[in-house]
């Protein structure tokens, strides 16, 4: 196990290096000059001033040198300053990240809360009417783009019923209730598609688990169906689900971006959106690296989760 974690860490570092470098190259190769973000176009008449600013921000150094400098600072936890606001990138991230994470976690939580019982029940009733209805809904949920789901929810629950605000964000420091009200719709928009994916994955694993002999032998002990399903059937059926939850973090990152755009939520996703618009390269760079790290770490956690779930894997590792 320590060996595995070590190799995972190595992979994380390598991935981060490659991704940060790739972003850096992309930023520099693509059209759009950082100087435009620093000085308004009409103020660029003064060549000397422009040169001075370039020098100051190190824009004249070769790309590799600049990347090295960025990397050197990054290891010490300094991701540089935003070209637009002058604020440290890390400060902005720590300010906004909790918002995005909250939406993501609530969304995953809601999805699992829905998908686990529904998926188990669907498998239990395989081929019967409830299963067919559930599978139909799952197929539909799978086909819902996040922004369409979001718009539907806004239309019904915000515009028509007025239960939740259509846009905006309340930090938990403003009270848990108001906070949850602003989390609800964005999280639900993400959760519907995710829940559909999770349900399908769990259902299909559960169906094969239920054909196992140990399920029959558990039933032959006179345990209730519910006990057999959840205490015997669920755990062996979780492996694919856990993998998919890990992988879905990738989709969810894209999803939160859309949701934050749709609901005007000041999270990381919206920040990267505006950073891209403003050519705020330091910000883009910092957030991209952060997202990548998050993705890789989550999937490492997934591998550890395997071992917790399945004692046989624990042993062979």
């Amino acid at each position: 196990m320590p060996k595995m974690i070590a190799s995972r860490l190595l992979r994380l570092v390598l991935t981060l290096l490659t991704v940060s470098f790739a972003t850096f190259v992309m930023v520099n190769v693509l059209p759009g000059d950082a100087i435009n973000a620093l000085i308004p176009i009409d103020a660029q008449q003064d060549q000397e001033f422009v040169e001075q600013v370039r020098e100051e921000w190190g824009l004249n150094d070769p790309m590799l040198v600049r990347y090295g400098r960025w990397l050197g600072n990054a290891v010490t936890g300094d991701l540089g300053d935003s070209i637009v606001t002058g604020q440290p990138v890390t400060a902005e991230i720590t300010h906004r990240l909790p918002i995005t994470l909250e939406i993501m976690f609530v969304a995953v939580g809601l999805s699992l809360l829905l998908a686990v019982p529904v998926g188990v029940f669907s498998a239990y009733r395989e081929g019967k009417r409830p299963d067919r209805v559930i599978s139909g809904f799952a197929q539909l949920g799978l086909s819902m783009p996040v922004f369409v789901t979001g718009l539907i929810l806004i239309y019904i629950f915000a515009l028509k019923l007025n239960w939740f605000p259509a846009t905006g964000w309340n930090r938990p420091s403003n009270g848990i209730g108001p906070n949850l009200k602003t989390v609800a719709l964005p999280a639900m928009s993400l959760a519907i598609t995710e829940a559909a994916v999770y349900t399908r994955v769990l259902r299909s694993d559960m169906i094969s688990t239920l054909k196992e002999n140990y399920i029959l032998s558990a039933r032959a002990k006179g345990l209730t169906d519910r006990f057999v399903l959840f205490r015997h059937g669920l755990r062996p059926s979780l492996l694919t689900l856990v993998t998919v939850v890990g992988l879905s973090v990738g989709t969810l990152i894209g999803g939160t971006l859309v949701v934050e755009f749709l609901f005007a939520i000041p999270g990381i996703g919206r920040r990267i959106f505006s950073a891209i618009y403003q050519r705020d390269f330091m910000m883009v760079q910092g957030i991209t690296v952060l997202i990548t790290a998050f993705y890789v770490i989550v999937n490492t956690v997934v591998d550890v989760a395997y071992m917790v779930i399945d004692p046989r894997i624990r042993r062979t590792n």
């Binding site: 196992e212 002999n213 140990y214 029959l216 032998s217 558990a218 015997h232 755990r235 062996p236 779930i309 399945d310 004692p311 046989r312």
Partner: peptide, 11 residues
Amino acid sequence: FQDPMTSLNPM
């Protein structure tokens, strides 16, 4: 059951 390998829950 026949096969103790599969009739006990591995988890």
